[in-house]
Design a protein around this nucleic acid. Structure first.
Lengths: 243, 243
DNA sequence: CGTCTAGTTGAGGGTCGTCAATAGAGGTGG
DNA sequence: CCACCTCTATTGACGACCCTCAACTAGACG
């Protein structure tokens, strides 16, 4: 039971998995971890990282900043997620990666990954599949900000997070609590203003669908929230079944 | 100069390319093409296609339909684009693919692709890279519908299309005309209503940035349109340089 | 005890959606 | 050749959703 446990669990959901690959990933435990404070950037738009980062603890997000300070979060990431696979194949990254909480991660050098990819086609396919699931999430987010009301957008976002946390084995007990994200984060993820997020959240609270207090989101009524959001986890593919 | 020319041109932009791969792709010319009328679906959400489709002629889009008939287009595709690579690795597709014009495409059986992937790691990497560029476009679309005004959204969409058409060698002469898409398509791609798209387009016309008549978009003033949209093609990665 | 961040509230206004009606282009059939 | 139909574009009126600005509260932390 090493610190790469969440990562292995995720990859196991993405495809058949041999002892060879298992040993490869285990070896990562010896890399040592890097720590980022909440608010710090793990990487910045335009950079050319020489490694990919695997989250071991904490929550991060990918975002793009526009001039005048607006920003749009395009995805959230949990322990076990490997972000930045883009940089391996595309070089320059087109978005920044920010830490939402304290984040511990392992940096996997591109050289190592390139080596793995050459020698382990099965692993390659799993990583490729992972980026495809990522892309599927982006698509759903386009739908979310494009065609849903504020109320629905937030509900949908919460639904997705709950499903992914479940798939990652990060939900304990009945009341599944979500990562501590601020209303400002939700606003940036849904394309809304902070003020309006606040009001929509009050409605969701009033309707007893969810509750956000002291930075912790609690899903109260899963089925009604799913309905309200028009949420269908099929787009998460393997992660949907694992949840 | 075969019908797979646009596809090869695109892959050449995505990575080093040997004679071996070239011959592989040439062999596709013998597969015969399938034709779809404008408005028809090449594939539907939830299906499990047994092949991937390579567009040879015409324009298509990926979209998701919500209940009550709203829909959100999540990407446009041109000749040379291989859509549906998702289905190869994820099975079920989470979105539909519609033909915007008459579309001719080659169906590449999954079996063939699987064979290629096993034997040609370089080709694998190019296809993977292609899906990563796809994902980068989705990210930018999230930003577009999430944080830009109607006016900017449309300008940005047009900028992206022009860049990609250039990269695909599909822009002739000075006045580069775009594929015949309706205002309704633009509405579905930008998360706006048809009526509002119409008014925003009138403004863009009034400002002499672009013109849409008889279903053909014409970019009038590239630099000012870029400025207005806040457009930076960096997210298109290899395609940006090729344009 | 002051300062900082996150959350909350009210007022007012702008962007954008809905509904409904009209105009024009293209296609089809009598 | 013209009547008719359909699809796309267009316009006006009206209202809703959401944004901005601004002020205020509450908790965290030194």
């Amino acid at each position: 039971m090493t610190i790469v446990r969440p990562f292995m669990q995720k990859l196991e959901q993405l495809g058949p998995f041999g002892d060879q690959e298992r040993r490869l990933l285990e070896s990562l435990s010896f890399n040592g971890t890097i720590t980022f404070d909440a608010g710090q950037d793990l990487a910045r738009e335009g950079e050319r990282p020489s490694d990919c980062k695997l989250i071991v603890e904490g929550y991060a997000c990918r975002y793009k900043a526009l001039k005048y300070g607006e920003r749009q979060i395009v995805s959230f990431h949990l322990p076990g997620d490997i972000i930045d696979l883009n940089s391996l194949l595309l070089g320059r990254i087109d978005h920044s990666i920010g830490a939402l909480t304290l984040v511990k991660c392992i940096a996997i050098p591109h050289a190592t990954l390139r080596d793995w990819i050459e020698r382990h086609p099965r692993l390659t396919q799993m990583l490729w599949r992972d980026t495809l699931v990522d892309a599927a999430v982006f698509r759903e987010w386009v739908v979310n900000v494009g065609r849903r009301s504020a109320y629905q957008r937030i509900a949908h976002l919460v639904c997705e997070l709950v499903t992914r946390l479940r798939a990652a084995g990060l939900v304990q007990a009945g009341a599944c609590d979500l990562p501590p994200i601020t209303e400002s984060d939700i606003a940036d993820a849904t394309g809304l203003s902070v003020v309006h997020v606040n009001r929509a959240l009050q409605q969701l609270r009033g309707d007893r669908l969810l509750d956000l207090r002291a930075g912790v989101l609690v899903a109260l009524d899963w089925e009604r929230m799913r309905q309200a959001a028009g949420y269908d986890p099929a787009y998460l593919h393997p992660l949907a079944e694992a949840a």
